[in-house]
Write a protein that binds this DNA or RNA. Structure first.
Length: 581
RNA sequence: GGCGGCGUAGCUCAGUUGGUUAGAGCAGUGGAAUCAUAAUCCACGUGUCCGGGGUUCGAAUCCCUGCGCCGCUACCA
């Protein structure tokens, strides 16, 4: 909590912009979205000024190829997925302050400003390249859309510039028997010359190293990948032969049929969307600048590991080239969530061709949101890949969230409401065990906060469950159902203490399970704060203040209904049949 | 090939800057309890800390090396 409050006045949180060429799935959520959302919800509870920015990434060649295949316009493709993904995030409770689009007109301006500043700084030059061109489609093809025979080992399914089998890398013209890797394109691609714009990454080597050296606290996987790049920087092509993207802001006929590379403009989308937010919400065209240019802003990127080079090397270099932008304080890169296949006993990478993806829209149609959030947080792939497994999903949700925490809350509130007329009892005389339990509350809350602030979400949710475990032990030892028969004052003391735990649990669960938290807050007649980017009261700190004796309680309901084994088996089977997308 | 991450109990994983008999949850066995969402609590662990070598009074932790899994390798977004 120190680093959040001591050094920074506000926190800007971003989640990677999902590509608007498909539905988001649980793998995306576990890595880049749920941890970010939990973090932001925590900051808001603490009253920290926090802005959470996301949006759709809507440019690039793959979208145009999807449009081509379906016989629709690229605009129709991005509208479809932007709408679907916006709804999916909303239903899962991913609480963006703004979920924007790189197709917004404002984004052309932001992107071109970035490009021009880099150009003016001498960080951009042009080079002539030889690229694959499809005579049939009359367009250039990125390497991923060209296959052929490896010149080194003869593998017939080699990529355009690299062989998956023998690992060889080669120039485009060395590939044998090139063919387009696009359904419906039977032509043989040919090489054509094309002039492109390059970002001079080597010029940023020293500042990038200094910046990375200043952040030893980052996750090892992120630092490893970032240093790997920074120790061998090369210029990077930032334009493409396509008409779907931001026009290159140069006065040059060669730029006419080209656009800025989608990977250059995607992270700039964070800036655009902040600008749009300031315009819409603050009605202040300059209101975004404090979030990007003031040293009091702490910027945190949440991404999957595939995104590390862009967020820990390229985008920071682009920001450095602007002159007046801040850099990220942390890049929280996650590994991947795989799918565990019970039939084979093996972990599988999620892929469309395998049909083993679980889309968010399918998940929220069939499962409680809190259950999804709980499980995905509990297995977040923070240091290595993890597996989604149906049996584990049910066992952990039922056995931990429902049985340990949910049931504790329920047994405590039920007894209290029945025996004390729906009010928190008087504390009366507290014994050693009571005081110990009360003392454990702030201790455990601090431990959860420490985990969250260190981006250790699995640990945080585990510590949350631990508070429930401690409470059950206390409850069992105090035996209020026994003392009730002989000593109502003692029973009242026990339940008073338990009610304090329940209140803390309510606040502690808010970032992870906002649905359950809202239901519990209603039962306790507590108001959870609704802080926004302007910050507010530190409700997390207030969570450990006691719920006064006499406070009215409503009849409790099960916060987290248990999942039915047969229903889960049905869903697992549907998933196995490829119906979960 | 180069680079990075990971390898700890049947399973999933924790193990700060090297320090007493290496921990938790789940599963399993036995017991207690009956307030509660048939939910809880207590007891029970002979683990080659992936193998090998080294540094050290002392290594799961640091160094070297081998093996295994995963990923990246710059035109996949």
């Amino acid at each position: 909590m120190d680093s959040v409050e001591k050094n920074f006045e506000r926190t800007l949180v971003t989640s990677a912009l999902p590509y608007a060429n498909g539905h988001i799935h649980l793998g995306h959520i576990a890595g880049a979205y749920l941890p970010a959302d939990i973090y932001v919800r925590y900051l808001r509870l603490r009253g920290v000024k926090a802005l959470y920015v996301g949006g759709s990434d809507e440019h690039g060649v793959p979208i145009t190829l999807t449009a081509l295949k379906e016989g629709v316009t690229p605009k129709e493709v991005i509208d479809r997925y932007h709408t679907a993904n916006t709804a999916a995030f909303q239903r899962l409770g991913i609480s963006y302050d703004i979920y924007g689009r790189t197709s917004w007109p404002l984004h052309v301006d932001t992107t071109q400003r970035f490009f021009k500043a880099l150009d003016a700084g001498g960080y951009i030059h042009t080079e002539e390249m030889e690229l694959w061109y499809s005579p049939q489609l009359e367009r250039f093809l990125p390497d991923r859309y060209v296959k052929g025979t490896c010149p080194k080992c003869g593998y017939t399914d080699a990529n355009g510039d690299e062989c998956e089998r023998c690992g060889a890398q080669y120039a485009a013209h060395e590939l044998l028997s090139p063919r387009a890797n696009i359904p419906g394109d039977a032509s043989s691609p040919v090489l054509r010359k094309s002039r492109h714009w390059f970002l001079d990454l080597p010029k940023f080597e020293a500042p990038l190293k200094a910046w990375l050296d200043g952040h030893p606290e980052w996750r090892p996987n992120v630092k490893g990948i970032a240093y790997g790049w920074v120790n061998d920087l090369r210029s990077r092509c930032i334009t493409r032969d396509t008409d779907w993207g931001v026009p290159i802001p140069v006065d040059d006929p060669d730029a006419e049929n080209k656009r800025i590379y989608v990977w250059f403009d995607a992270p700039i989308g964070y800036v655009t969307n902040t600008r749009q937010w300031a315009q819409d919400k603050l009605r202040d065209a300059n209101g975004w600048e404090i979030w990007w240019k003031d040293s009091g802003t702490r910027m945190i990127h949440f991404i999957g590991k595939d995104n590390v080079p862009f967020h820990a090397v390229i985008f920071p270099a682009m920001l450095m080239g602007q002159g007046d932008y801040i850099l990220a304080d942390n890049v929280v890169g996650n590994e991947y969530l795989n799918i565990f296949n019970r039939q084979t006993g093996k972990s599988e990478k999620g892929s469309k061709s395998r049909g083993n993806m679980i889309s968010v829209r399918w998940a929220v149609d069939n499962l409680p949101v809190d259950a999804i959030r709980y499980y995905l947080c509990a297995i977040a792939p923070e240091s290595k890949d993890s597996d989604f497994d149906w049996d584990e999903f049910m066992n952990r949700y039922n056995g931990e969230l429902c049985d340990v925490v949910g049931n504790f809350v329920h047994r405590c509130l039920t007894m209290t409401v029945k025996n004390f007329a729906g009010r928190v009892p008087e504390a009366g005389e507290l014994e050693a065990a009571d005081k110990e339990m009360l003392d454990a509350i702030p201790r455990q809350m601090a431990a959860i906060a420490e985990s969250l602030e260190g981006f250790k979400f699995r640990q945080a949710v585990e510590r949350f469950i631990d508070l429930g475990r401690k409470a059950n032990v206390y409850f069992d030892a105090a035996k209020p159902w026994v003392t009730r028969k002989t000593d109502m004052a003692r029973t009242g003391a026990t339940l008073y203490v338990c009610c304090q735990v329940v209140k803390a649990l309510c606040f502690a669960m808010t970032p992870f399970m906002p649905g359950g938290a809202a239901a519990l807050a209603a039962t306790l007649n507590l108001a959870l704060p609704n802080n926004g980017p302007d910050g507010g009261e530190d409700a997390w700190a207030a969570a450990v203040a006691p719920l006064p004796a006499g406070s009215a309680l409503n009849a409790p309901q099960a916060l987290f209904p248990k999942l039915d084994r047969e229903r889960i088996a049905e869903l697992a089977e549907a998933h196995r049949q490829g119906e979960a997308f």
